[in-house]
Design a protein around this nucleic acid. Structure first.
Length: 728
DNA sequence: CACCATCGCCTTTTT
DNA sequence: GGCGATGGTG
């Protein structure tokens, strides 16, 4: 067999990792060092050189995008379809297992998946049922508590309240939420993982089956695994205790690849320590380091190295490149966020004018909300762009409405879907009737659907409401029966029409409704283009699971040459010749919420590192001195990350004033504030409130307002015009 | 019960 | 700026 296509493109370190003898392997791979290449070539190597069947290989990634890419690369490498390989995200693979073994996992057949919004809705319902005040028990926090415990593998019965009454309440809520999920036949993201773990832990035979089948488990982005994912992998590929070499032939061979400097998912329970844990659990593991970067110029790499060196908790490595020094990193200090967007637009047009492709360009930002200003600028300058993430297709309200009908058709017990559409379009089933239904369902421990049937039969509802409800139930039953024989997209189409949903949105006010109708039509074509996989599910069920697991990227148009816009998180694993890293301001990036804690700050720094190392040839950094966010203006300072980049690598771009040394902290334009003494951070005296410090400035001229933190009175918003502030 | 206007709240990142 | 809760009106 000719192995040269597998081995030739590799450098020495890569080749060593790819051809490592069977046994546990840990690859520490820096940004741009060919991590994905090593993973895919290892798989090809296993198949072609070691003679491993593709069926015996399980490859796990974190995003659907990465999974798709890996499958494509392997197919190209081997020249055959990689259908037999199990490649997917942790969630996707867990889902696949649970579909096959729903009985053993004690799940409902045809269980459905909650996305985080669905989960939050359900939590709100649980709170309501428990008659708890949402201001005291914030749904987000309850959600966090539940998910966090699931990510650590803890069920309510494992938790101790430590005689803390509010903790005790949270534990109760967790338990109540679990019951609600079971009643409704639904499963959230964290549950997929935990359930798949418990499935194996509690079914020795099943586990044995999969251990025999998947001798080769490859995990990408290992620094982003959480406790339960690690435990799951360890269960599948258990460490061989020293001295039991006799079993070596039957051993599993985990091959994990990661980079502690790119750990950016701590907020959802990821534990970068799993890299070290792996070395402790698999002491015989071979360690490979990939430190040669093939992506970026040395300027960019040095800057990124310099930045990340400010993190204390690192395994440590030194990325190097033999490539050219390249152009300096450019820093643009924008007047405000619109100026920032215009600057970027301008540079993009220059790039295009010189024959560059727009798809070579990425605009990266910390949070999705920042995309809007760029979109507006690109729109008016007619720069084609594509936004990744943000409001995704399957997360749109009208799509979720349609999916709720479909879910109800495939599972009557899905209360969340029931509530969502029982009165949409309005059919005379109001809050009162619903209250009665909920009470009945709670009393009987049944689903809303069952309670509805019972209430109609017992005459517990008014005759009008009972009639409407009956009509609704008949509609669902009719749809279920009449569409059962249709192909998927006709099924979806029928549901949209017969339910009245399409008509409802058609009648909605002008443009808003129009977009929604278009989206609903898009849903039909999505269904048309959908190929169900696996035989455990009906096409409809399969489609619904797909909708939850893969929220679907926004408007595609992949063939068009577009500027790529995305958050730093979704940029991981990608590379672009030209990168704009925007919004580098204290409070925005690093984000306000991480300023207080060191671990959070280090994660933000890694995020910045990830962003910088996406750039191949050119990197632009920018920040705005004034930014309007959530409707209010505030003044910002350059992010500390800018200052942490070694001097001499950055060149400041200043169309108005030439300043050589960048980023003096706390500097403001002299001409900006129009009222004397009204500057951020200035001390002022007020006739009534006493002395204070200016925290924020909003508006200008006669409408200018300032937020002042008074020593005695706390913070207040004042009209500059009337406040008569004395600068101190 | 439906519809509309208003107010007050929050606001990171993803499967 | 966007959402849900709330309250008033038809």
């Amino acid at each position: 067999m000719d192995l040269s296509p597998i081995l030739n493109p590799l450098n020495e370190a890569q080749r060593a990792a790819v051809t490592a003898p069977l046994g546990p392997v840990l690859v520490l791979a820096g940004a741009g060092s060919g991590k994905t290449r090593v993973l895919t070539h290892r798989i090809a190597w296993l198949i072609q050189a070691e003679g491993i069947s593709p069926q015996g290989i399980l490859a796990v990634t974190f995003t659907n995008k990465a999974a798709g890419e890996m499958r494509g690369r392997i197919e190209r490498l081997l020249g055959v379809p990689g259908g037999a390989l199990w490649i997917g995200t942790f969630h996707g693979i867990a889902h696949r297992l649970l579909r096959i073994h729903w009985r053993e996992a004690r799940l409902a057949q045809g269980f459905q998946i909650l996305d985080s919004e669905d989960q939050q809705r359900l939590i709100k319902k649980v709170l309501k049922a428990a008659e708890l005040d949402e201001s005291r028990w914030v749904p987000r926090e309850v959600q966090w508590f539940i998910n966090n415990n699931k990510d650590e593998g803890r069920r309510p019965e494992h938790l101790k309240d430590g005689s803390d009454p509010s903790r005790a309440q949270l534990i109760k809520l967790y338990a109540a939420y679990e019951q609600a999920c079971a009643r409704n036949g639904v499963v959230d993201f964290a549950e997929l993982l935990l359930r798949a773990f418990e499935l194996w832990r509690e079914n020795a035979q099943l586990l044995e089956h999969y251990r025999r089948r998947f001798r080769h488990v490859l995990v990408d982005e290992f620094q982003d695994t959480n406790s339960i994912q690690y435990a799951w992998m360890r269960l599948l590929a258990p460490p061989v205790p020293p001295g039991s070499e006799a079993d070596a032939a039957a051993a599993s061979h985990p091959f994990v690849v990661g980079d502690d400097d790119q750990a950016i998912y701590r907020f959802r329970g990821a534990r970068a320590e799993n890299l070290q844990q792996f070395r402790r659990d698999y002491p015989q593991a071979r360690l490979f380091r990939l430190e040669q970067n093939y992506r970026s110029t040395s300027n960019i790499l040095e800057a990124a190295n310099g930045l990340i060196a400010h993190n204390a908790s690192r395994l440590g490595k030194n990325l190097w490149t033999s490539g050219a020094r390249g152009e300096p990193i450019r820093l643009y200090t924008a007047f405000n966020e619109r100026d920032e967007a215009e600057f970027v637009t301008h540079r993009i047009r220059e790039h295009a004018a010189q024959g560059g492709l727009r798809r070579e360009i990425a605009v990266l930002y910390r949070s999705n909300a920042q995309s809007r200003v760029f979109e507006e600028a690109f729109l008016s300058a007619r720069v084609p762009y594509r936004v990744y993430g943000g409001l995704r297709f399957f997360e749109r309200a009208e799509i979720k409405d349609a999916l709720a009908y479909l879910r109800l058709i495939s599972n009557r017990r899905d209360d969340a879907s029931f509530e969502r559409v029982v009165n949409l379009p309005t059919r005379g089933i109001g809050a009162k009737s619903l209250d009665a239904l909920r009470a009945a369902a709670r009393g009987a421990g049944s689903s809303l659907w069952e309670a509805a049937g019972a209430c109609i039969a017992s005459g517990a509802l008014g005759s009008k409401a009972a009639g409407s409800l009956h009509a609704f139930m008949a509609l669902i039953e009719r749809l279920a029966a009449s569409t059962a024989t249709l192909v998927l997209h006709e099924q979806v189409d029928q549901v949209l029409k017969v339910s009245g949903l399409l008509e409802h949105y058609r009648r909605e006010k002008a443009d808003r409704g129009e977009v929604r109708v278009e989206n609903l039509e898009e849903l039909v074509s999505a269904a048309r283009g959908f190929t169900p996989e696996g035989s455990e599910l009906s096409p409809l069920e399969s489609f619904l699971a797909h909708a939850a697991l893969e929220a679907g990227e926004g408007q595609a148009e992949q063939w068009e040459d577009c500027v790529q816009m995305m958050t730093l998180h979704s940029a991981k694993g990608l590379e672009f010749p030209l990168v704009f890293l925007a919004g580098l301001e204290e409070g925005l990036f690093p984000h306000q919420r991480s300023l207080g804690d060191l671990d959070g700050l280090e994660e933000e720094r890694r995020l910045c590192y990830v962003g910088m190392t996406r750039a191949m040839r050119q990197l632009y950094l920018s920040y705005a001195e004034q930014r309007r966010l959530h409707g209010i203006d505030s003044y910002g300072q350059a992010s500390r990350f800018v200052r942490e980049i070694p001097e001499g690598l950055i060149e400041e771009v200043r169309p108005r004033v030439q300043v050589s040394r960048p980023v003096a902290v706390g500097r403001f334009r002299a001409e900006e504030p129009e009222v004397a003494g009204v500057r951020l951070g200035a001390r002022v005296r007020h006739g009534k409130f006493g002395d204070g410090v200016i925290l924020n400035v909003e508006g200008s001229g006669a409408h200018a307002r300032v937020q002042v933190n008074f020593e005695r009175q706390g913070t207040k918003w004042l009209m500059v015009q009337y406040a008569n502030l004395q600068p101190l």
